[in-house]
Design a protein around this nucleic acid. Structure first.
Length: 565
DNA sequence: CTAGGGTTAG
């Protein structure tokens, strides 16, 4: 920049330059300032403002420069609009590509769609870069069916196009579609590279698809695909999320360089497995290796503390975070509230929430609500319930949670008033869903859905499990698979129903550890925990259950995670 | 001067 400023001064002071050379020099200076990692976008802006009629190259440099800066803004879109208004330069395929990328980064769908129509108007829609830009815009905005339409319309699909579509499916958790497309891509004769594989591995992680994840890992090795920083991080996350925390650590140890995300992924992995010592040791090692922790790293550390009741350590991390200038986000507050509630410090949790610098969200209120289940904290219940229902009057989860707490206290009038409120607001319960991977295919189990081709066989196994649970002296769980029950009973049986289905099906077919992922609205309640223990013991099978928060590993009827309550 | 990738609280 220092040298460039000197050149800039010489250009400005040189009276012999003709106007075209002058403009050309300024646009070269501009593009350096806007695009080089050593550049300065504000300097670029000043240079740009001094060019009377910037050409398309200069506009493009500015648009791209502004979409490269750290905190995303609408500046590239504003520049694009100014370009059209100025009337001196028409957008070309580069312009459209850059501004579409800027739109995807901030999920500006409407603007992106307008740019799509400009692309047609200026005849740029045949450019492969514009096509990929559009595909990626829809994918990033989670408009996956529009993305698929764009994908279908691209005649010659190259590696980048396939990767973008697979990544789109993977990001929103449409795992089978992502993996299906990966197979189609190979059938079409396109070889995947490390970028494609990251999305495929991430899809396996989201699905808890261990068998498939392992196959993909060996595929990467077999094809000689470069295992770079990002790919290794994806592998760590996949093994951690599929229950093989030891394998995750192996990948981590083999890495030649590790950035903040790699460390954070490993720390969060340990924390969700209840391996608190490993998580916190890794955190210190990270600091010693001079890698800067970010907000996710601290979330992992706080998570570890919350899961093991380390209140003092959690509070020290909280302060350390402030010292490093990292502003706590909603998630960090949520983690602290959970930490305090689990340790039985409900009053502290409540006053912590009242001191928050921004209004707490529904998750925080729900965490508090679960924290005040103990009788002595009952007085705050109504207050929290009001906040929750005001914030999310249409979320069935809140009504079910409240109704269950009232039932716990035998306040049946309040239970029925919750039911009444739900009916008045026309709220439907979102069915629980579990999934399990067998032979590389992810089976989803949704409450009330009996369409699985092997449903009859599953019922036989369920009955058998039910019988074994009864024989070990426990009451069998309520299940609408086995009996017809009315709607209200069905609702309370949601959790049991789908998890049991998944477990039963897993025991039928696979000898690998059974990983069950609970997707929505469920928690791994004490009842499920008990039944899983019995099943693990009775069937002599290792079962790994992943609820939304962490892993529980059952061997011979014992749960090895040191969960803290 | 063009397009695709990893971690995130209950």
């Amino acid at each position: 920049m220092k040298t460039l400023r000197q050149i800039h001064v010489r250009v400005l002071r040189n009276p012999t330059l003709c106007s075209s050379t002058y403009t050309f020099s300024l646009s070269k200076i501009l593009s350096f300032c806007a695009l080089s990692p050593h550049g300065d976008i504000r300097y670029a802006r000043r240079v740009f403002d001094a060019i009377p009629q910037p050409n398309v190259f200069s506009w493009n440099s500015m648009i791209r420069g502004f979409s490269q800066v750290q905190n995303q803004s609408r500046e590239p879109i504003a520049l694009y609009k100014n370009m059209l208004f100025s009337g001196f330069a028409n957008p070309n395929s580069f312009t459209v590509t850059f501004v579409l990328k800027a739109c995807s980064k901030i999920s500006a769908l409407r603007e992106g769609q307008q740019i799509q129509s400009h692309a047609y108007k200026y005849g740029l829609d045949s450019s492969p870069f514009v096509q990929t830009g559009l595909l990626n815009l829809y994918a990033k905005c989670e408009e996956i069916s529009s993305a698929r339409v764009v994908f279908g319309d691209i005649p010659d699909k190259n590696l980048i196009v396939w990767s973008a579509m697979i990544s789109g499916y993977s990001r929103i958790g449409m795992v089978n579609e992502a993996l299906g497309l990966f197979r189609e891509m190979q059938e079409a004769g396109i070889s995947p590279d490390e970028v494609t594989m990251v999305s495929v591995i991430s899809a396996c992680a989201k699905a808890g698809a261990l068998d498939l994840g392992r196959w993909v890992h060996s595929f990467v090795d077999r094809k000689g695909i470069r295992t770079d920083l990002v790919l290794s991080t994806a592998l760590i996350d996949m093994y951690a999320k599929c229950g093989l925390i030891g394998k995750a650590k192996e990948v981590f140890d083999e890495m030649l360089e590790r950035d903040t995300m790699a460390w954070s992924t490993m720390i969060v992995g340990f924390a969700t497995h209840g391996l608190v010592d490993d998580a916190l040791k890794l955190f210190s090692w990270m600091l010693a290796s001079k890698v800067k922790p970010n907000h996710v790293t601290f979330l992992g550390a706080l998570l570890a503390c919350a899961h093991s009741g380390l209140v003092g350590d959690g509070q020290r991390f909280w302060l350390a975070m402030h010292d490093l200038g990292i502003q706590p986000l909603m998630e960090h507050y949520g983690c602290m509230v959970d930490l305090l509630c689990r340790a039985g410090l409900f009053e502290e949790a409540y006053s912590f929430v009242s001191r928050m610098p921004f209004p707490p969200n529904a998750i925080i209120w729900r965490t508090l609500l679960i924290g005040c289940k103990k009788k002595e904290f009952q007085d705050k219940e109504e207050l929290i319930a009001d906040h929750l229902l005001q914030l999310e009057p249409l979320n069935a989860e809140n009504y079910v949670l409240l109704s269950n707490i009232y039932a716990l206290r035998s306040q049946w009038d309040k239970v029925s008033s919750m039911r009444k409120k739900m009916k008045e607001n026309g709220i439907k319960v979102f069915p629980g869903c579990s999934s399990i991977e067998i032979d590389g295919f992810v089976h989803d189990f949704v409450v009330g859905d009996e369409s699985h081709p092997e449903i009859k066989h599953i019922r036989v196994v369920l009955k058998d499990i039910s019988e074994r649970v009864r024989l070990s002296g426990h009451l069998p769980w309520t299940s609408s698979v086995l009996h017809d029950v009315d709607e209200e009973e069905k609702e309370s049986a949601l959790c049991e129903h789908s998890e049991r289905l998944a477990i039963a099906f897993g025991l039928l077919k696979t000898s690998a550890p059974v990983v069950i992922r609970v997707v929505k609205n469920l928690r791994f309640c004490a009842d499920c925990h008990e039944v899983t223990k019995i099943v693990s013991k009775e069937y002599g099978r290792e079962i790994i259950v992943r609820d939304r928060v962490r892993f529980h590993r059952f061997v011979g009827g014992n749960c090895s995670c040191n969960d803290f309550w």
